[in-house]
Simulated assay, not measured.
Amino acid sequence: MALYPRFLAVLAAVALTSTLAPPAFAQRSQNPNEPQATEGSGGRANRGRSERAPRGPSPERVRADVQGHLTALGNTCQISEAKLLGQSADANKTSMYEIACATGPGYILLGSTPPSATDCLVLAASAQQTRARDPEADVGTQCTLPANDNAQAVFASYAKEAGMDCAIDGAAIVGAASDGAIVYEIGCAGTEGARIQKSATGWTRSSCFELASVNTACRFTTPAELAATLKGWLAGSEAANCDVQQSRFMGQNANGVFYEASCAGADGVIVRFNAEKAVQQVYPCATAQPIGGGCKLTTTPPAATPEA
């Protein structure tokens, strides 16, 4: 899925001119044999005079400009550092900045009309996708401020906001939703992970169990972690002794949410849970055919043929 295609196209089109200020004074070389200029009645002579080099805007000016652009965007970043990267070579002289924020990701910001910004995590993910296709490809401007090397902390913060209480062992941007919201995948050590995205009303979460049921595999959640998750949900129920080997999400209806488990050395089960994952009913595979088409992970032997 494309990541902020409009911004990235504009970003690629910006030809930066250097903003590194030369020394405050660019001194002409002095030849001891060359006559020195003197001040005449017509005014001060220019030869031999130190010439002041052009200087970039002050850090205070850069911060003020960046704050104005962020305000226009409705972005609540509390600026901890702002750096002017350059200006476009065209007549518009569009400025580009890198910003670090007190919390959350930093941004590459274009001071265009209107301004636009993309967070550093999105740019890094786009670069990774591009390099996967062509290791020698130009991936454009990337965030370089040390404070913006904080991807794992940002992912952990997002996971907590989305209600994920686990030890994170992997995280990445995996694309964008149809409304443009960035989709993140979060992996949890030893248990089920999820994909999360933020909307105007808060975070939404899609479990890796549910994603697997529509043939979308989570990168950071293994089948063994899914099985361990389901095993944990069975604690205290009549299926607690099931040593879960395989597991699958089957769907839900007005009565609850249904999962199948295959059990080592025993008949598998289909289990109905409520929204809080408390077990409501257990159906042995031998009698569970009416439940969503029955068990798929456990092969139930046919009934024995009566002797003549």
Rank of each mutant, 00 (worst) to 15 (best):
L3K: 03
R6V: 13
L11N: 14
L16G: 09
S18N: 15
L20R: 15
A26S: 12
R28Q: 15
N31G: 07
P32L: 08
A37V: 00
N46T: 12
R47N: 09
P54L: 10
R55L: 11
V62R: 10
A64I: 09
L70S: 06
N75G: 01
K93R: 15
S95I: 03
M96Q: 09
G106M: 09
I108P: 11
I108F: 12
L109R: 09
G111M: 03
P114S: 08
C120D: 09
A124E: 14
A125M: 04
A137W: 00
T141D: 04
L145F: 00
D149F: 10
A151N: 07
F155L: 10
I168L: 15
I168S: 08
I173M: 07
A177T: 02
G180S: 03
I186K: 06
G187S: 07
C188K: 05
R195L: 04
Q197V: 04
S199A: 08
S199L: 14
S207N: 03
R219A: 15
L226M: 11
A227R: 08
K231Y: 04
S247G: 04
F249H: 05
M250P: 00
Q252A: 11
Y259Q: 09
Y259N: 13
A261I: 00
G265Q: 05
V269R: 09
V269H: 11
I270N: 02
R272A: 03
F273L: 02
A275W: 02
K277H: 14
Y283C: 06
C285K: 08
T287C: 03
A288D: 11
Q289M: 13
T298L: 01
T299F: 04
